[in-house]
């Protein structure tokens, strides 16, 4: 049966004027409308695309591309996680380095402060050396202004002490007594003491000054209230002090060169750091020539002053 026969069949139906032709027309029209409605519903639900292809078919068609895309996404997520880890690691490193840089800066500041303190101490040493030399050269002026000269010389030493206001450092220099035995006598003192300090004559046995003198060694007492130390508790002083440093005035280790003791007091317990004690020893060496010069000038033999006899 070809198309022309089908057309002729429908022409006969139409010319016969029977009900079947009308029924068939309505049936086909309603069927087409229903198909179209179903199409729209399925399209709306996403079950098919506008070409009428089912979603499963589309997925099946796109599967290799989708897999590839999914792989790429997974890979990108992994790379992203790795990058985040690396960034966090770098962040931690940066934080650590920043902290270290800060610490290095603080250390530098501390070092610089100490370096500055040392250069300043150098200036005080230079001025002391210069004024000692001037005093030796200008004997007349030295004799006339001895107290002022020592005042300033000892000020240079005190200037190198850290925390002057808290520590209230005071210095006295004692030499062996010219007339009395078994005691030392006042020679010079720094500002801050009353003149009554001149009356204090430390015993060669039973005082910190005597201890340094007898042994020709630096004697540092961090706390004078501690038991078992050689210290004269009746020592006259305007202000109370807890620390005491006694430095023998000698040229090297030879007892016979010892001409006196320089003692330094400090208000707090353990007032003086090692560097400060070392500076006091340094200044004692700087002052030695002037004191020696003065004692020789007065006709007192240095051998006599530091002899073993004078220490017993």
């Amino acid at each position: 049966m070809d198309i022309s026969e089908i057309i002729r069949f429908f022409e006969r139906l139409e010319s016969s004027g029977g009900w079947f032709y009308d029924f068939l027309s309505y049936f086909i029209a309603i069927g087409l409308v229903l198909v179209f409605i179903i199409y729209l519903i399925r399209l709306w639900r996403g079950e098919i695309n506008w070409l009428g292809q089912r979603a499963e078919e589309i997925n099946e068609t796109d599967s290799p591309q989708r897999d590839e895309l999914e792989n790429q996404v997974t890979k990108l997520i992994q790379e992203n996680e790795l990058l985040i880890k690396q960034i966090n690691k770098k962040d931690r490193m940066i934080q650590k380095l920043t902290k270290e840089v800060k610490e290095v800066k603080q250390l530098y500041m501390e070092l610089d402060e100490r370096y500055e303190d040392e250069t300043y101490t150098m200036s005080q040493i230079v001025y002391t050396a210069e004024e000692v030399a001037t005093a030796i050269v200008n004997e007349e002026d030295f004799v006339k202004n001895k107290d002022d000269i020592y005042d300033n010389l000892l000020d240079y030493l005190i200037n190198t002490i850290r925390g002057y206001r808290e520590k209230s450092p005071r210095i006295v220099i004692h030499i062996p007594h010219f007339t009395k035995e078994g005691v030392l006598m006042h020679y010079a003192h720094s500002s801050g003491y009353s003149h009554r300090i001149k009356e204090y004559e430390p015993e060669i046995f039973g005082s910190a000054v005597g201890h340094a003198w007898r042994n020709n060694e630096v004697y540092y007492i961090p706390d004078v209230e501690e038991a078992g130390i050689e210290f004269d508790r009746n020592r006259q002083a305007k202000k109370k002090f807890r620390s005491l440093l006694c430095v023998p005035l000698s040229a090297g280790q030879d007892f016979s060169t010892c001409i006196g003791v320089l003692s330094l007091t400090g208000e707090p317990v353990n007032a003086y750091e090692k560097i400060e004690r070392e500076r006091v020893v340094l200044f004692s060496k700087l002052l030695y020539p002037l004191i020696y010069f003065d004692l020789v000038r007065k006709g007192v033999s240095a051998n006599g002053l530091g002899s073993q006899e004078s220490k017993t």
Partner: peptide
């Protein structure tokens, strides 16, 4: 310190 030193010994620092 500043006035006593007046730059003395301090240039390297």
């Amino acid at each position: 310190m500043d006035q006593m030193k007046n730059g003395l010994f301090d240039h390297e620092r």
